[in-house]
């Protein structure tokens, strides 16, 4: 394991494509009201997988929270 990291979604960049929720349904949910992605409270991903999800976001709206506690 390369350690778990937290992620964040830039709400101004996200346009609700939902690729993140499709890749990691336990971590990302599109909000019912505005259709924009949110990170589920406390959810983390393995760093390598997180990097992949960041890479796959078509809106480039997801980033890894770098000061997040690992574990």
């Amino acid at each position: 394991m390369s350690g778990a990291v937290h992620l964040t979604v830039d709400l101004d960049r996200c346009i609700g494509i939902g690729q993140c929720e499709m890749l990691e349904p336990e971590v990302f949910r599109l909000d019912d009201e505005d259709g924009i992605s949110r990170v589920v409270d406390g959810a983390t991903l393995d760093r390598a997988r997180a990097a992949e999800v960041v890479e796959r976001c078509p809106s480039m709206a997801i980033s890894i929270v770098e000061d997040s506690p690992s574990g």
């Binding site: 346009i15 609700g16 494509i17 939902g18 929720e21 499709m22 349904p25 949910r29 599109l30 019912d32 505005d34 259709g35 924009i36």
Partner: peptide
């Protein structure tokens, strides 16, 4: 962006 957000609301994975 405006149009996409409006229609994305009704086209979510859920």
């Amino acid at each position: 962006t405006r149009l996409r957000r409006l229609v994305s609301k009704v086209f979510t994975p859920k």
